[in-house]
């Protein structure tokens, strides 16, 4: 059974003129690291909300088809059912933090699901260590930097032991170094076995970690596959996807008759391919 299955799913928000998602069909399995990208307004956020039933249960509208998360139809089970399967992290962590300190924040979700206090205690300590939050233990969330708040928000999400972390542009309000730290944590969680669905425009930062990239445009999936294969497609430029600079150089060289053999995703990979080409 797939972890997430979109079975010909379409959705239109109440009052909107056009469908936000059009006949989406795909499956996502345990352990995958899927990056979703595409022009703004293409349906990425709606896609994330559909995974944990916020669409169509909280955000209402016209629905066709089904989404199954962990085998359960998101139209039939309560939103709370999915909180412990798919953990959502948003762009602005301030909107997500509800309590006054780190420990309470992490404990909040499992407390609401009736998890035993000793188990909650264990999860809090484990997550404080995993996300390096020891120094923030006594700090009020509003005294924290954006990067610190986002780390706490991720910890609070993980406290519910989700099988997939769904992160919607989690680093776009952060400075580049804090952004990199968050993305390293996400890549680390994936290596430990958690599936990741990440919405991101800045593929320079994330393409190297992904096992799969999905391109969306106007509510549809227009490409889905290995990051190097997808980013090498001309379609990316046509719909306005921010192809990594190193990949852009590769493409420009190719049109001038220089074939580098493989598609680079980072500057360092590009330099390595150039070196290999000279030694051939």
């Amino acid at each position: 059974m797939a972890l997430i299955e979109f079975a010909d799913f379409s959705f239109k928000y109440l009052g909107a003129d056009s469908l936000a998602l059009k006949r989406i069909k795909l499956t996502i399995d345990n352990g995958e690291y899927v990056v979703i990208t595409g022009p703004s307004g293409c349906g990425k956020t709606t896609f994330c909300r559909a995974i944990n039933a916020l669409v169509p249960q909280f955000h209402r509208g016209y629905v066709a088809g089904n989404v199954y998360t962990d085998g359960k139809n998101t139209r039939e089970y309560e939103v709370a059912t999915f909180a412990s399967v798919a953990g959502l992290v948003f762009q602005n962590p301030e909107n997500q933090l509800v309590t006054l300190d780190v420990e309470k924040e992490i404990a909040f979700g499992p407390e609401n699901l009736g998890v035993a206090p000793s188990e909650i205690r264990r999860r809090v300590e484990e997550l404080i260590e995993l996300l390096d939050l020891e120094e923030l233990r006594e700090k009020h969330p509003h005294e924290m930097s954006g990067g610190e708040q986002q780390r706490v928000a991720i910890a609070a999400t993980l406290a519910l032991k989700p099988k997939v972390l769904v992160a919607d542009e989690p680093t776009s309000n952060l400075d580049p170094q804090s952004a990199e730290a968050i993305l390293e944590i996400i890549a680390h969680l994936n290596k430990r076995g958690m599936a990741v669905v990440l919405v991101e425009h800045r593929l320079d930062l994330v393409a190297k970690d992904a096992s799969r990239i999905i391109l969306m445009d106007k509510g549809r999936i227009v490409a889905d596959g290995d990051p190097r294969e997808v980013l090498a497609m001309d379609l990316c430029e046509e719909i306005g996807v921010g192809v990594p600079k190193a990949t852009q150089v590769y493409k420009r060289l190719k049109t001038r008759g220089i074939e580098l053999g493989n598609v680079p995703l980072t500057g360092v990979e590009l330099a390595e391919l150039v070196q290999e080409a000279t030694s051939r």
């Binding site: 400075d175 170094q177 990594p244 500057g267 360092v268």
Partner: peptide
């Protein structure tokens, strides 16, 4: 707190 641009990293490695 910036990250060096990818093109700078590529140039350095080259």
């Amino acid at each position: 707190s910036l990250a060096p641009p990818q093109m700078t990293l590529a140039a350095r490695a080259l």
